[in-house]
Amino acid sequence: MVTLQHTWIPYLYLYGVGGLFFLVGMIIIRKSGSIDLRRKSHRMWNRVLIFGFFWFVVMHAILTYAALNW
């Protein structure tokens, strides 16, 4: 019997706690001026960073759904 403890709870924990670390990182690099959104290349990097996060969010969601339903 597959329980939530094996499916969506780890998923939520991963992207909840991990997402918090990611968010803090994004805020710190913006606030500190390390990433400067006035620069074209940095705007691209900002998009890459956000894309990367959702890339893995979607990847894990699809894999979990596939394991349960396919």
Binding site: G18, F22, G25, M26, I28, I29, S34, I35, G52
Partner: peptide, 20 residues
């Protein structure tokens, strides 16, 4: 397949690394 999870959980600290 959960053996793969350690390969797919590295992005959270990438902002700190790339711009820190």
């Amino acid at each position: 397949f959960s053996s793969s999870m350690t390969y797919i959980n590295d992005w959270f600290f990438v902002p700190f690394f790339l711009f820190g």
